[in-house]
Design a protein around this nucleic acid. Sequence first.
DNA 1: TATGAATGAGTATTCATTCAT
DNA 2: TATGAATGAATACTCATTCAT
Lengths: 195, 195, 195, 195
Amino acid sequence: MKKNKPKYNQIIEAAVEVIAENGYHASQVSRIAKKAGVADGTIYLYFNNKEDILISVFEEKMGQFIEKIACGISKMNNAEEKLLKLIQMHFHQLSEDPHLAIVTQLELRQSNTDLRLKINQILKPYLTVIDDIIVEGTKENIFRDDLNVLLVRQMIFGTLDEIMTNWVMKEQKYNLAQEALQVQSFIINGLSVRE
Amino acid sequence: MKKNKPKYNQIIEAAVEVIAENGYHASQVSRIAKKAGVADGTIYLYFNNKEDILISVFEEKMGQFIEKIACGISKMNNAEEKLLKLIQMHFHQLSEDPHLAIVTQLELRQSNTDLRLKINQILKPYLTVIDDIIVEGTKENIFRDDLNVLLVRQMIFGTLDEIMTNWVMKEQKYNLAQEALQVQSFIINGLSVRE
Amino acid sequence: MKKNKPKYNQIIEAAVEVIAENGYHASQVSRIAKKAGVADGTIYLYFNNKEDILISVFEEKMGQFIEKIACGISKMNNAEEKLLKLIQMHFHQLSEDPHLAIVTQLELRQSNTDLRLKINQILKPYLTVIDDIIVEGTKENIFRDDLNVLLVRQMIFGTLDEIMTNWVMKEQKYNLAQEALQVQSFIINGLSVRE
Amino acid sequence: MKKNKPKYNQIIEAAVEVIAENGYHASQVSRIAKKAGVADGTIYLYFNNKEDILISVFEEKMGQFIEKIACGISKMNNAEEKLLKLIQMHFHQLSEDPHLAIVTQLELRQSNTDLRLKINQILKPYLTVIDDIIVEGTKENIFRDDLNVLLVRQMIFGTLDEIMTNWVMKEQKYNLAQEALQVQSFIINGLSVRE
DNA sequence: TATGAATGAGTATTCATTCAT
DNA sequence: TATGAATGAATACTCATTCAT
């Protein structure tokens, strides 16, 4: 498995740094190679093309991202707690790794539609985690039973994603962790005044 | 005023079409010129450079988009109704103009960070409209009074934006209009079971 | 005769200024038109094309330049005096009009070979003036009678031209007039120690 | 050292030919690449940009030109002989390589002022060679001791340069070598009848 | 595996010139 | 005569990818 080879990871890490620092379009393959300490040609022993580097970056990082969240959630007792945990960990993980946050929220989106479809595939397990919480919440009678799971998941993901993007574009100047509870409350209770 | 000149609008319309059909990166200036029925050089009598075309497209289209929504909302009686109207019109306007939807949801995001900052500026009036609804809802005692307006606005916009993007990426195969009510309900009531 | 029309001269004067200030390649026709206070298209009522403007500038200015020198020389009594007068006036006239000096010594040379042949045609009367002095000097028995007039004229012109070019490139910081006598002495006596 | 790389020299030689044949402005980088038998992009592995090719051509060729003259002169016994040798070799070297003569006398002058300043820097060692002859001649009591070295050098260089340019523009139809002696005589003795 | 020199396709922009008014 | 909006040809340079070593 090529992924166990050290150069593969060197290149992945170099790509995250180079893209975060220079932006997607200024990140030439040769620059990534230099930062990774390998020759330009070596890149092509591990990746098919430049796009493949980007997909692999997302794949590797998202894999870890989702795994940790799935793990964290499994310890929670109900959908409400799981949702909060998911929000907290979503914010926390990206806050902890600003380079990765820049890449996922800004630079990776500067890719063409084909690449975005591949990115969506990689994202699917995360969306499934969200779906599961929704379904579980409904079963637990915490959430309404008339929910359109697909739609609700889009809304939840869109909410979290937009908050992350704003945070990155505001140059990470404020503390996201504090907002997790408000976000959970919004998703669960909405804006209305509770009777 | 250059905006009254017919060629300015011809170029704007051509740009939307060409970008929607070919994607951001395959949209050469010469192709836009051809579609607009003008010479390549004519583009530069009306726009400073290629980026300026893109910004202007967004400016023009978003201007109309926001104006219509602001107008539609003004006829509504309270924040709840206004929110529903905003959601309906947001979905409706982009659904009606698939080319524009593709450009705003997919292609325009493939731009660099500088351009995205300019786009955010153009988007600001729309965000303000959302802010106003939130504030109004609070005053009307329909919405809670402990809301963080900035955060809530991000969540609402993120929700709508993600739904639109999914719809565009799924090739506009389903009817968005039907979902507006569910979305409003989600935003106002959240997921929880009402007592 | 078009040359009596005021706009013709306005354009010529504007061209000298614009070329001297911006350099040959940065001197767009539209800039010359603007400085001359006419529309771009008007230029083409008086000149065939951009090259024609340049040739005409040289023609007009060189015509005056040569006329004055020919006139000044005619008052001198012998070839030696005439040579000195020619040198003095060559230096004086271009020193007095730095814009013209820049155009003739630097910018006009950035033209293609065809244009340079035309420039050489315009220069011919000046070269003839030099030829005449050489021939006269020989007849007066002041200059040797074995001189190759064509070659000697090239040497004299080359000498004056190089001095002017150096003066222009050194940004006209020193006084050329003082050097005329040394130049005349060099041409007449050479470098050798006179017995 | 890049200058030992064969492609560097291939490109230099191709550039001389292409510029001599097509003129400065019609010499596209792609044409030079084609003539040199390399890809367009390869040019940019050896040169920073198009201007850099031109400067390097002049640098390489002038370097050899000056070196040979300096070498030839060193064998001569006094300033008079050295001057003659310099003139002969100046004429000879450029006569032998008409492509180079066209480039140096005509095409390279079609460059902007910045480039000309760089060219002047490259020319400096040649001017110094001339200066040295003047100073030596004075010390040997062959030349007058009141000479303004800078001015005299300009006159000598201008003389040679103008003769070369005329020869190139007359399409190299006559034999320059024969004129070297007359030129030396002019420079040393001037035009006057010797008593 | 690893290298890095070489490749060559691809495109925004300028500006001299025209021509309908 | 005079205008100036419109034209469209023309070109340097980058960078992802290859392949001989």
